[in-house]
Design a protein around this nucleic acid. Structure first.
Lengths: 209, 209
DNA sequence: TTTATTTACGACCGGTCGGTCGTTTTGTAG
DNA sequence: CTACAAAACGACCGACCGGTCGTAAATAAA
């Protein structure tokens, strides 16, 4: 079975478009994203975009999936190399902040930006973002539960509550970074570290390399 | 000295416009705010808006100030009735969450939304938002410092770090509310309460009415 | 080569955007 | 009343928006 060059070309274009669209959407807003500007940035024609997505909205939905894939690749997967338990929870927090610090995206976090942008705007996009947000919180909560079950954390508190705190420290970093500068990430890391140290059964689990 | 009815009329209009613009901007975005739609919602003509603000940007800046005034009136001032120290810090957190819970604005928080919207968009608006954000963090940090100086909190930690945590719990509530529902505010309140209880010198200070 | 399919394009459409201009309405002062 | 100033308006402008359509180039199958 050989690959069809036409389909391959289309796939290449689609990826290039989504890469560029993700960057634009994260700085200009998922809705502020303009098809003309996107086409211009890519050196293709605006009409060409409609060969791949039937409408702006379907492209926006594709951008959301693309952002999710990037997030999995660059944050979740690397963090999953850490051993199960509190170290893995910490790794996710740490990698996430590193993603922001490294400014992999101009607005630092596509999902935080998009969630706030569509906070009060019902529709397909809002629905999709909501699902992704729910998935992410479920993932974080799962990590917290694992950390308790592994015996790393004393089974005192609601895992969902801990997950909320982790999420809060991360989201806030996105917003505060332009104002507080590097201190933002010190605070975001230190806060969780202190909190986990108060909950951990074996202090050596949280020793930094 | 009598009041000039013409100026009074203008002032009335300006306030009405800003009230409506604040609501629209919080749901559609500060930039997504359209002058035509705003005029339509108010039952006035679009051209009439330019009699009060010379450009969309100057109106946007006015909306920011209007939002600040609302925030001071409905969150800060009521909270300042609480006695100095940790109770006042808690009151600010609590009133803030009540502001969100009561859905005083459709997107719950103008400033959180606007900060994320203009995260990566330099200009006059970004600059103004940054100043306000800095002021707010300074205010929160001041409350934390006061709580230590008043002897309510053990002088262990950086007040700025505590302020960051308070801010994080608040901002995250805005984002998670559509997803987690009422549980959001339970988490946001419980998390700070637990944290403060671990730092407070007199446990009775944090007993709920 | 011919035929079919996918990708990409230029030209164009109706609609909305922020903004301007000259005029009319509303209220004050003499 | 007249003279004047602030506020509001209708008509209009160029630019850009998302989207359509018929067509041309690229690739594959016959």
């Amino acid at each position: 079975m050989t690959i069809d060059g036409r389909l391959a070309r289309g796939e290449r274009t689609r990826t290039a478009v989504l890469d560029s669209a993700l960057v634009l959407a994260t700085s200009e807003g998922l809705d502020g994203l303009s098809l003309s500007q996107l086409a211009l940035a890519l050196g293709i024609s605006k009409a060409g975009l409609f060969a791949h997505w039937r409408s702006k909205e379907s492209l926006q939905l594709a951008v959301i999936e693309h952002a999710r894939a990037q997030w999995v690749d660059e944050v979740i997967k690397p963090a999953l190399r850490a051993p199960r338990g509190v170290r893995r929870l910490w790794a996710v927090h740490d990698r996430r902040l590193a993603f922001y610090e490294g400014e992999r995206l101009p607005g630092r976090c596509f999902f935080a930006n998009a969630n706030f942008e569509f906070n009060a705007r019902p529709g397909a996009i809002r629905d999709r973002l909501e699902v992704q947000c729910r998935d992410w919180m479920t993932f974080l909560t799962g990590l917290c539960t694992e950390a308790v079950e592994a015996g790393d954390l004393r089974p005192v508190l609601d895992p969902a509550a801990l997950a909320y705190e982790v999420e809060a420290l991360g989201v806030c970093a996105v917003m505060q970074a332009p104002v507080l500068g590097p201190a933002t990430f010190r605070h975001a890391r230190r806060a969780l570290l202190d909190h986990l140290r108060a909950l951990v059964t074996d202090p050596t689990l949280l020793e930094q390399p």
